[in-house]
Amino acid sequence: MAEFLQQLINGISLGSVYALLALGVTLVWGVLDVLNFAHAQFMTWGTFGTVLFLNRGYSVIVSVLLGMLVAAVLAIVVEEAVVSPLRRRSSDLFAPVVATIGVGFILETALKMRTDGELRPFPRTGFPTGSIAIGNVNVPKLQLVVLITTIVVMVLLGLWLGRTRNGRELRAVAYSREISELLGVNARVSFMTAFAVSGALAALAGTFVSVQTSLISYSSGGPLLLVIFAAIVIGGMGSVPGAVLGGLVLGVSQVMTSAYVSSELADAASFILMLLVLLIRPTGLIPQKAASRA
């Protein structure tokens, strides 16, 4: 039982990181109808940003916040320079999606050149070490911090989307750019905001992944991208609670598969689960309502 609980906590911890990543993707999808393939690179660039500031002696909190800022700025640049111009010129939604694939490659290649393609250590100084015993279960303090931070961020995101003017505007734009502009909402600002928040969340998630593996490379984000897409499909495309649930379900299923079936099947479990959900409930576990998407 203790082992099962331990694995469950591991799964929730991994799932909460997936949820952070999935939230960013689903936010952009909800507001702009663009599936952002460059999201993994926002994560990697943001994490490298965090590393840069950690190596310069900044505190963990300041470094993480600055890393999030790096990714947010990068995301805004991508949105303004690539995604929005393409959306303005064509109603074809496929063009901006393909463009984000290109942007992803460019960003990954740039990092690869800058880091000589090497795997680098993630500086863990300042991050919590050791573990706390909760009953028979030993929970690493780091994992607990990751989990608590993720929950706090999700609650704040929910409050922001649901209860602030800015969040309302984002949801209005997600439903209809035209209606929202008609009522005085600056849709362009909403687009930038969605991308910026998405980038910042990716950087935070990336830092959490790297601090737990103690490693970072230019290609750290790539393998996670498909898992994130699976998470938002499981949860329901464009649905914020769906992204959180999808991330958690995937995290737990991967850890459990790895622990009790085979670690080689962990990734496959994600996609088997996704296919099952698609077959039984094609709109996902928590489908978005048109007016409450994003």
Binding site: T164, A172, I179, L183, A291
Partner: peptide, 28 residues
């Protein structure tokens, strides 16, 4: 017609009032 079809009548009208919401994200 351009309505938020899946939203309540009140939510639709509230959207029209969104400029009256002056609270900021940090205003709790």
């Amino acid at each position: 017609l351009r309505l938020l079809e899946q939203s309540s009548v009140l939510e639709n009208v509230l959207l029209g009032r969104h400029q009256r919401f002056t609270v900021r994200p940090w205003t709790m």
